[in-house]
Amino acid sequence: MLSDDQMKKNDLFKPRRSDLILIAILAAAAALLAVLFAFGKGHEQGTYAEVVLNGQSYGIYDLKEDQTIRIETDLGYNLIEIQNGSVSMKEADCPDQYCVSKGAVSSSADPIVCLPHRLVIQILPDKTEPVSFDAVSE
């Protein structure tokens, strides 16, 4: 809250040059991050998709094998589909449906996130050794 004195001294409701500088700095920071992420490591096509549930690895799946994975938890269910080397969220009963509208992904810089269900599908870069793969695929 401002006192009347402060109000009169400088009009805090009128955009100033310092605002534009601040906004430019923020935009530059966002752009820099975007460039770093775009050209940084990890932005590559992968052959394995890892499903992370509640912060823990739920399973690692081979993108070369077409399959559907149904995951049911207390929070709801998700139906993951792997087809033609990419993975997508086919169905989910989460309220926002962001994960479903995300579509098919195959890049390690492009995770599918279903925040309401605490579920993330991330593509593992090719170099990653799928340590638990054998255990999961039976």
Binding site: I23, L26, A27, A29, A30, A31, L33, A34, F37, G42, V52, N54, G55, Q56, S108, A109, D110, P111, V113, L115, R118, L119, V120, Q122
Partner: peptide, 27 residues
């Protein structure tokens, strides 16, 4: 918060988009 809850740091890839959106809506 999302990175903490899901335990997947890859979510940070959303950061530039979200920051840009935050600047627009904030303005």
């Amino acid at each position: 918060a999302a990175m903490l809850v899901t335990g997947v740091p890859v979510i940070a890839y959303y950061l530039p988009v979200l920051m840009g959106a935050g600047i627009l809506t904030g303005c």
